[in-house]
Amino acid sequence: MSFDWMIKIVSENWPMFLRGAGMTLFISIIGTILGFIIGLIVGIIRTIPMPERGGKRVTLKIINSILGIYIEVFRGTPMIVQAMVIYYGSALLFGIDMNKLNAAILIVSINTGAYMSEIVRGGIISVDKGQFEAAYAIGMTHFQTMINVVLPQAIRNILPAIGNEFVINIKDTSVLNVIAVSELFFQTKSISGINFRYFETFFVASVLYFVMTFTVTRILRYIERKMDGPENYIMYANQMQVETPEDTLRRTQSVNGNNR
């Protein structure tokens, strides 16, 4: 009987499940934070206004195209493939034998960074042009404008998309089992490899995944509600998973109500 099996599997293997879930959460949190930092830097660089001429223009163009390639490549290939290429590639090509956990964090961060770059860029260009102009008009540099005026608004507006990336990471770290990182999927595979009860064991894992994403989603939505609705929210994510259409509607309605 399946249910009895599940109870037996949980009672015998709960430390392994918990360690796996802990590892999954750890990698997703660190990966999302580092990915956000990468995205912030790349997004900021890609929104620097193009100088009209001179060496600076050439340098910026080159940097922009490199960053563009980074984003395209990492968004255009599956993370499971990226994991294999980076982990085995670094060993083969550079002779670096990466610690599995570090490799996992590296892969998730670079991958998340590619998505975050576009999210941040979308957040920046969604801030009203008048905000930039008012800052320039009182003599701020582009950098001062970003730090003091634009980024605080952009980041607040993209919080839902950032939370969304976090939820995606919780689920997608499962692909790291291909480089034998002991996250939840890997642990589940090991447990089922011993007891051969695939359905029951993976059912337990699915419950754990769901509890994690559901809890995170609730917490994030609570945080978003706490912060008052952004002025110029922009829907800019690959797959929205945190915000419901109702939230979006409520948000845009309150904007229209307040803004005129």
Partner: peptide
């Protein structure tokens, strides 16, 4: 030059006082 725009362009992330001091402090 002090500039006043048709659309106000107050810094949305600052309160009234913040709007009036951020330029003085940073610039």
């Amino acid at each position: 030059l002090g500039m006043v725009f048709q659309q106000f362009n107050l810094f949305n992330n600052h309160d009234v006082l913040g709007n009036c001091i951020v330029g003085q402090m940073k610039v």
